[in-house]
Amino acid sequence: MLAQELYDTAPLGSLVRFSNGEPRPPERFTRKLRAWNNHNGVGRLVERSPGFVTNTYRSSATFYLHLGNFGSEGTIVLVVRRGYCVDSSLQFELVETPKPGMVRILTPIGNHEELQFLARDTTDAENWLATHRFPNARTEIVGDPDPVVLPSITGRAA
């Protein structure tokens, strides 16, 4: 699917595969493999950001995939997220969507929300919130069907 389709239809918390369509190079070509990994992988949809319009500038809507956490001994040192414009040339595929009954933990960012954690159930969400203190965090139980709520386009009058 195209990036715009993913932006319009995938619920927050979905697992998404992205690809440039090229075959994976052999392990012995380390530089080519590293470059290939930049354009091919899997991430969790954690945020949608609407486009921005002013008199002189227009930005496309974007979405962000959480690619991983890195650290040691239970301490996260680096969170890797990557943003994609809706006009990206990469191909996207929905691998998995959140199941009904799961709980999203969301925090507000401007006029849209960011997914902090996707819990299996309310007990798991409460335990996570007790150890990870996010101001203004709210929980949202995944329904059946799970409607997609798009952020509105922001702009400034001339």
Rank of each mutant, 00 (worst) to 15 (best):
P50N: 04
T54M: 12
F134K: 13
R133Y: 05
T122N: 12
F134E: 08
E126K: 11
H39F: 09
V16D: 00
N69A: 08
S60I: 05
R48Y: 03
G143V: 05
Q91D: 02
G101C: 12
T154K: 13
S88P: 06
R81A: 00
L2S: 05
T131K: 07
L129I: 08
V42I: 11
N55L: 15
R81E: 07
L150I: 07
G71S: 10
Q4P: 02
E126V: 10
V103K: 10
N38C: 04
R104Q: 08
G51I: 11
L106Y: 12
T122E: 14
C85Q: 04
Q4E: 08
M1E: 05
G110W: 11
R34E: 10
F18S: 01
I141G: 03
I153C: 03
A3L: 02
D87G: 00
Q91P: 00
P147N: 05
Y57N: 10
Q4M: 05
L150A: 04
Q4G: 00
V148A: 00
N20W: 12
I109W: 13
A3R: 04
V46W: 02
A137Y: 12
Q116L: 09
A158N: 11
E73Y: 14
P23L: 03
F52K: 14
T62A: 04
G21V: 09
T123D: 09
N55P: 07
T75M: 08
E22I: 06
A158E: 05
L45N: 01
V53R: 15
T97I: 01
P100C: 07
G71F: 01
R81L: 02
L12N: 04
G74P: 09
L106I: 11
L150G: 03
N40E: 06
L6N: 00
T62R: 13
L65M: 06
R133M: 13
K32R: 13
D87C: 00
H112Y: 15
V103E: 03
I141Q: 11
T30F: 12
G41K: 01
E27K: 15
E73S: 14
N111Q: 15
R58I: 09
G71I: 04
G21C: 09
I109V: 15
S19F: 06
L2Q: 06
R58T: 15
Y7I: 00
P100H: 10
V95I: 11
P135Q: 07
Y57R: 15
E27Q: 15
A35R: 14
T107F: 09
V46Y: 03
F134A: 07
V86S: 02
Y64M: 12
P108K: 10
N38E: 11
G41C: 01
N40D: 02
S14Y: 02
E113S: 14
Y84I: 02
P50S: 05
R24A: 14
W36Y: 13
I105H: 05
E96Q: 12
P25I: 01
D146V: 05
E93N: 05
R104S: 02
N111V: 14
D146G: 03
N37T: 11
A119W: 07
F134P: 10
N20M: 07
T54A: 15
E96D: 06
D87W: 06
G71H: 09
G51K: 12
